[in-house]
């Protein structure tokens, strides 16, 4: 998506959308973690050239778990990534996986996919309430690797041809564990204006 036509007002609306969506996702996560307190940062809405997308989660060489899903409503498409740095990944698995199972074995990986599914589903539930749109969601894909390689693969796997992207990122902090995770939204070209129009933006 080119940055043409994205105003400060649009960014404000998108940030609010992300705030409410991530709020719902954080509530879901908190429920899964026996009501632990989860704080949200103010969402960042950035227009990033393709070349800098792999750095959008920080150091492109750091190991993260990324759960990728695609939400769709008619021709509107949103790629949603739950990105968890390794400490957060292991801490969540430690609490949620029954004892005796290998943290990053088959069941641990399945848990991460389900976590992506639940948080993304919750995010979309809020988006649906606000826009009146009904989204379908693809089954999750999980990657555990360098952040930059994962983000590059998202762009390549989805054959996104844009030279710049709107990235809508919200960071969640699980206070007692001192770990954080991100929810990252990448709307496909054209999708953004449809969402904005739906919300009555000029």
């Amino acid at each position: 998506m080119r940055d043409a036509g994205i105003t400060e007002q649009h960014k404000d609306i998108l940030a609010e959308l992300a705030n409410i969506g991530t709020g719902n996702a954080a509530t879901a996560l908190s429920q899964m973690l026996d009501h632990e307190k989860i704080l949200l940062e103010v969402p960042e809405v950035n227009i990033s050239p393709l070349q800098h997308v792999p750095e959008s989660l920080g150091d492109p060489g750091q190991k993260i778990a990324a759960i990728m899903m695609e939400a769709a409503c008619d021709e509107l498409e949103l790629t949603i990534l739950l990105a968890l740095p390794l400490p957060a990944t292991l801490s969540l698995i430690d609490q949620l996986l029954p004892e005796g199972l290998e943290p990053l074995g088959e069941m641990g990986r399945s848990l991460l996919m389900e976590l992506g599914n639940i948080l993304t589903g919750s995010y979309l539930n809020a988006l649906s309430d606000m826009t009146g749109l009904t989204f379908t969601l693809s089954p999750p894909g999980l990657g555990l690797d360098m952040a930059g390689a994962l983000l590059g693969s998202v762009i390549a796997d989805k054959a996104m041809l844009e030279d710049s992207f709107i990235l809508i990122k919200t960071t969640m902090h699980i206070l007692s564990r001192e770990v954080e995770g991100n929810l990252l939204l990448l709307p496909s070209a054209g999708s953004l204006h449809k969402i904005l129009a739906r919300l009555g933006a000029q």
């Binding site: 879901a28 589903g121 919750s122 009904t134 989204f135």
Partner: peptide, 9 residues
């Protein structure tokens, strides 16, 4: 039993 709680779904 689903994470997708959107009204229409």
């Amino acid at each position: 039993v689903s994470a997708m709680g959107q009204k229409a779904l």
